[in-house]
Each structure stands twice: as C-alpha cells, then as structure tokens.
Design a protein around this nucleic acid. Structure first.
Lengths: 356, 356
DNA sequence: TTTGGCACTCTTAGTTCGAGAGTGCTAAAT
DNA sequence: ATTTAGCACTCTCGAACTAAGAGTGCCAAA
C-alpha cells in the first residue's frame, strides 16, 4: 500500500491508516511520555495489523520526519514536525461543555479593582485549569475616552495630572511645567479641557484638537497658553503597557527531570526578562484565533521542548491583547486549546463589562 | 584534653582547638559542598594534628550534635545546630570596603518612580550581588502626612478621592457616598479639608479630628455633613501593604539536584502564596539587626535546607520593613550578612531621600 | 593526651550479564 | 502488491559483582 503522495501544500498526503497510526502514537506518547513501539500500536490502535506492518508504516513516518527513535530499540516519539502535522490536521479538540464554560465565566466575572487585577486572576485561572504556566498580556487600551481631567499643583513647576478615562479607570501623571501655575489657573485650564474634550478619544485630542490650538498660539490669551502647555504633556501617548503576567510557573517543574533543569532555569529567567516572550506574543496579536508554537518554532531558543498556545482577546474587531499557556511540548492539546479559546472570549467579555 | 565544659547558656563551652576545627570544617563544607573528613582537616586546618586526633574531636562534636555523618565513611557535615553555633560564635564576617558600599549606594540611588519600583530594584540588587534570592518587604508607611486631597464625582454616588501624601506620593480611592454630591459641594469639602488638615498625619486626622466633628454632627450645616461623610471613607486606614517582592528565585535552581526538585517547587509556591513567608518576615520586624533562620528553625516547613538572612530597615527608631535573602543553608554567610546589613541601611537612606 | 596502625564499613564507579523491548530485513502467505 | 511470520541484531535497563578509595573507630604504644 502506498503510504503517501506528494502534495502542493508541502506535507505529503498520508493515507487514512497511516494518519490513524500517527495520531494514535502521538496521543499515546502525550499520555504516557514513553516512546511507543510497534507492538503497542498493533495491539491498541484498533486496526488489526501485525506489528510488522505497523513497523513498515512507522519506518515511512520516520523517513518523512514525523517520528524519530531515541535509540534503535525504544519505539518512536513525535518530532516537532510530527506535532505540527498532528495539531494542524489530526487533532480533534474536546470542546468545553456548558457547565465548564459557566464555571470559568463565574471565576472571571468576580469584580476586580482594575485591569491588572483581572489579568492576574485570569492568568492564575489558566494555570490552575491546565496545570501549566498561564500567560496574559495586559490589554492595550488604544481607545482611551477622556472623561475628566484635573490638575493639582505639587511644588515649584510640578503638576499632578489626574485623568479619568473609560468609565472609571484613573491615571496619575506628574508633569513638569515651564513656569509655576497657581491652583486657580490650573482649575480654569481643567474646566476648559473638560468642557471641550470630555467624551473624546485621548489620542484624537492630542493629535488634532491641540494642533489647532497650537497653530494659533501667538494670539492666545494667558488662559489658553496654560491650557496648551499643560494639556500637551498630560495627553502624551501613554506608554504602551507592553507587559504580561505569568502564573503557575511552578507547574512546569513537575515535568522537568534533572537534565532539563538548566533549560527550565533559562525559561524562568526568560519569564523575568520578558523581552523575548513579548516579541513572541506580539506575533500572535496579528494572528487570528488560536496559535500554537511548538518547541523552537517560535524562534525563541529557551522554548526548546516547550509549546506555547495562545489566542488573542478583544472586543469585536479591536484586538486588545493575547493570552495563553506555556507547557511541555507533550501536553494535552485537545483540552488546552478549548480552554485558551474560551478564556480569551471570557476575558474580552469581562473587560467590556468592567468598562461601563 | 577535655573538649567541653557545661555552660549555663545551653551550648557546651568548646575549647579553642575544637572551635577552630569546627569553624574550619564548616567553612570548607560551605566552600565545596562535600562532607569533610579527618584527613582533610589534619592536612589543611593548620593545627598540626594527626587525623586520629582530629577524629576524636569530630566524634565529640558529633556527640554534641554539631556534626553528623551522612554515612559511616563520608566525613562530616554540619547540622542545623552546628550552623547555629557557627553563626553565633565562630563566624567572622567580611565587611564591605568603602568601594563596594559606594557601588551599592550608586545602584540604589537611581531615581525611581515610587516605592514599589525602588523595592523591586533593591530586591534585584540583593539577588544579583549574592547570587541568591532577594526578598524585600514593601515599606509600611505608618506615617502618612496629608498634603492635599481632592474629590472628583464619577457617577451616581461614586466619588474618586485623590490623596497626595508624603511629598509626592499619590493615592486614588473610589468611595461610595450615600447621596449624590455636586462637583462644587465636593470642591468646598476639599477646600475645607485642605485648609484644616494639610500637613497632619492621616491616622491622626481619622482618629482625632474627625471624631470631634462627628460628635457635633447634628448641629452641622450641609457643607460639614458632606465633609464628614466623604472624609470618613477617604482617610480610612490604608490596608497595610503586607507584601514583598522576590527576585532571582532562579538562582536557587543552581543549587538544587533532582531529589530537591520537589522541595524547590514547594518553596517557589510559597513565594507566590506569601502568607507563610510574611509571617516569618513579620517576626524579623520586631528584632534588631541581622536575623538568621537556619533550615526549619523558621517553623516554615518549606524552608528545610534553606536559610534566610534578614535585616530590618527604617529611619531612626521607626522600622519600615524587612529585607534579606534566601539561599541554601550552605551559603557564604561571611559575605551575605554584610551585604544584607548595608543594603538595609542604604534602602532606608533612599526612602528618606525620596520623601522630600 | 596524642598518634600510628589496623580492621572494618560504606560509597562510588566500572564491568559484566541477562532479560526485555524494539527494530529491520527476508521470505512466505494472502 | 500487501501483509505477515520469523529471525538476527541492537540497545537499554537493572541487578549483581568487584575493586578502589575514603573515612571511621578502637587499641595499644609513644
């Protein structure tokens, strides 16, 4: 029986039986963590084939780069390529039932102080449910609707600006001014800004409206000059909160054996370093739906031996961030993927709810 | 030669030679991590004794509980009791020279956004210098001097209170009111509070001054009723920031071997759990100077095999918090202790400086 | 009180060995 | 053309054994 034909897509086309065996082998390896041999497959895969036949198929799969043998007499384990094919075409995920979804929704729905709290709790939730490390990017609040702004003079030339945006989120910024302003001057400036700009998008305020004022700067009265100087700094683009929260790293220690210990240490250090992983998450921002990086596919060396499952979350067409889990390549994708998917949806819901 | 005499203090009194051998053995064990035998001591300890003599001494020390032998033919290692005696009476610390202190001061002196930033950076510094896990409690700002307070109406019965305390630290609180207040009402209330209470200790405000007002509540006019209701919630005691920051946990993975891996995992989980360690740190608050917990002495089971070196930091007589390091019992106390000591002093300095 | 000598114990590393698992290949069966 | 049975081969793993080395305790002599 011919096992494969070439295909334009890159992956050779495998016949049904071969696919079945590959899937069974990978599922078994994920379950037990042991190399799987021809005898086991012949016995358990439900295909009524002799070990010899299975061996032929396995030899083909090894040839094609989906499997490899740790040593000559130890059965086969999946390669990265094998996992990739498994996930792309063989995997049947196990969608959560309504009860489980409701349970997640209940946990995420707990009222939180602010976004950071919520993100931390979701990260914990992910890690708790999957027994892996959860990771959640802080939401990028591109759209910040100004609700109110106030100024307090702090000391010589330093002013505290308080922004209330998006319902009830409060931000403080300390700004330096060229000259000292009195409390009443600042009050007037705030009044003006609130009257003119409340309800507008902050970015828009910074870009368009202030420009108009600036152009006519020379003809401005004293009040308006104050307004321009103070507002300029106040509405300066918030630094993108390029940050994430990791929870349950310790779960990963359960899978490590001694030889991996150094690798695990490097991974933990990468969690603290953040820059590498942020780059990875950034890629997922642009992608749609669940993304899976297997081992070094991510381009991030420390992830060798680990996989990352992510999903972007956001409201409607606007993507706010990415969340997911990090675990050993040998993880239960069929359970993890739906969890990540649903959690992303629920987090978006929660953020939306918190906003009003 | 008699090796010990009983002493009222609990520790038997060891003669010079015995102490010297004990110190040398522990120092060597800390350096190499290997059980130390009589031959090594006879050769390197500089006492010109035969191994046989050394063996006699070691047998005595084992009898007294300062040493134990992992197996019958493997030299001796210190027990917890041995470490305790070593630290209490044998240890000669290696004080930092002026250059090193200046280097630390430079690093801690970097201007920081706020206390939390500073604490994080000091924790990092501790871990970087010692190659162990650094731990710093957030300072308890018992003394919060009110500088300014402002109120912003958010929505139906919800008011944002902004406190500026201790120079330039800003705190936001959202409070619920019984009825809706207008912006001008709130403004008046703020004006009153600022006029009356600026420069006072917040705790004092909450305890004494508001009480006076409350007593005469019935006779108060509308403005003062507003003041009382709003201020009551605003000045409610801040939740004690019972929290700490750990840095460089990954250093600890360098010392672990496979058998310890599970123990290490539990320790990492304790870092996240926080409650156990907070209790431990709390004990150190009351103590003066450097405190050292060896292994399970702390009463905290997960610390078996690890030691904690802490020092309280604060300005003058007021203790603000505790910092220290966590590392394997077998650590270079002579280097670590001065680092912890000096860092505590420098952190206090930095907090003091940031305050003005 | 110290020391040399000695018998003894225990760990460690290396070796050997057999069992077991798994493979690839070939030839026979379907 | 496929599948299967059989067989020789390879490799891992654990057990058993060994020799070397380190260290001890004790005793008798210095």
């Amino acid at each position: 029986m011919r096992v494969s034909e070439s295909t334009p897509a890159g992956h050779p086309l495998l016949n049904e039986r071969t696919q079945h065996l590959l899937r069974f082998l990978i599922e078994r390896y994920i379950r037990d963590g042991q190399p799987v041999g021809s005898r086991t497959l012949s016995r358990d895969a439900g295909l009524d084939l002799s070990p010899a036949t299975v061996r032929n198929v396995m030899a083909d799969l090894e040839e094609m780069g989906y499997l490899r043998a740790p040593h000559i007499s130890a059965g086969r384990v999946p390669t990265s390529r094998g996992y990739r094919f498994f996930i792309d075409t063989l995997l049947r995920t196990n969608p959560l039932d309504q009860r489980q979804i409701e349970e997640l929704r209940r946990q995420i729905g707990q009222p939180m102080q602010n976004d950071a709290e919520l993100v931390r709790s979701v990260s914990n939730l992910l890690s708790g449910v999957t027994h892996l490390a959860g990771i959640v990017m802080l939401p990028r609040r591109q759209t910040m609707t100004l609700r109110q702004v106030e100024f307090l003079p702090l000391s010589e030339c330093r002013v505290l600006a308080i922004l209330v945006v998006n319902g009830q989120e409060v931000q403080n910024r300390i700004i330096q001014t060229r000259r000292r302003y009195s409390a009443s001057e600042l009050q007037q400036a705030a009044n003006y800004l609130n009257a003119q700009f409340a309800g507008r998008d902050i970015e828009q305020v910074q870009k368009n409206l202030l420009d108009e004022l600036r152009q006519t700067r020379d003809s401005l009265d004293r009040l308006m000059q104050t307004v321009v100087e103070v507002a300029e700094q106040t509405f300066e683009a918030t630094p993108e909160s390029d940050d994430y929260v990791v929870a349950g790293q310790t779960h990963l220690m359960r899978y490590a054996d001694l030889s991996d210990l150094d690798k695990l240490r490097q991974l933990f250090e990468a969690f603290n370093q953040k820059s590498d992983l942020l780059h990875l998450l950034d890629q997922c921002l642009r992608a749609e739906g669940v993304q899976i990086f297997i081992g070094e596919e991510s381009g991030c060396g420390v992830l060798d031996g680990y996989s990352v499952v992510t999903a972007p979350y956001g409201t409607g067409e606007r993507v706010l961030g990415v969340l997911g889990i990090i675990g050993p390549t040998r993880m239960a994708y069929d359970r993890v993927i739906p969890v990540v998917e649903v959690t992303a949806r629920l987090l978006a819901e929660a953020l939306d709810g918190q906003r009003d």
